[in-house]
């Protein structure tokens, strides 16, 4: 079994916590996130016959009042960047967070999740922005906390990249 630390990053209220809620094993209360700035969950999955245990650090969302606690990124093996599809500014936040993370810990595998896919008609993100990211080799997935769409796949893709 391989254990990897994975950090979830994203702007405030993009739905990080609810996105993974039903896919992970939670031991700690969500109020840890507001007090400590992080909530830790566990996600186990098998990739190519290997058991992978992701220790998921769900970091508090960044906004103008709360900034990312960089020490939490130490020893991270992968990132989940979460964006709210209905709020284009959250994509910018995600990009900034990614840059900060790279500056702190260097290049590591990551996946960008455009959340709230169930509200696709309300999306305000310019598809060309996404295309540009994909063209840069980024993995971009559409997810929905409501339907669970894309979440398991995101874990798999990230897991596979981390094991590569």
């Amino acid at each position: 079994m391989i254990r990897k630390k994975v950090c979830m990053l994203g702007a405030f209220a993009v739905g990080k916590t609810s996105l993974v809620e039903r896919f992970v094993k939670s031991l700690f209360n969500t109020r840890y996130q507001t007090s400590l700035g992080v909530k830790i969950d566990k996600k186990s999955l098998a990739i190519d016959g290997r058991l992978l245990e992701l220790i998921l650090w769900d970091l508090a969302g960044e906004d103008e009042f709360v900034s990312l606690r960089l020490p939490y990124l130490r020893g991270t093996a992968g990132l989940l960047l979460v964006v709210d599809g209905t709020r284009p500014e959250t994509l910018d936040t995600a990009l900034t967070l990614h840059d900060k993370a790279v500056a702190e810990i260097g290049e590591i595998p990551f996946v960008l999740l455009i959340n709230k896919a169930d509200l696709a008609e309300g999306w305000h993100i310019d598809p060309r922005d996404i295309d540009r990211l994909v063209a840069r080799g980024w993995t971009v997935l559409e997810t929905s906390a409501k339907t669970g769409r894309g979440v398991e796949e995101a874990f798999r893709i990230l897991g596979r990249e981390m094991l590569a």
């Binding site: 254990r3 094993k25 031991l27 969950d41 220790i55």
Partner: peptide
């Protein structure tokens, strides 16, 4: 879950 405990 010791794994989560250690991370915490």
């Amino acid at each position: 879950d010791a794994g989560l405990g250690s991370a915490m």
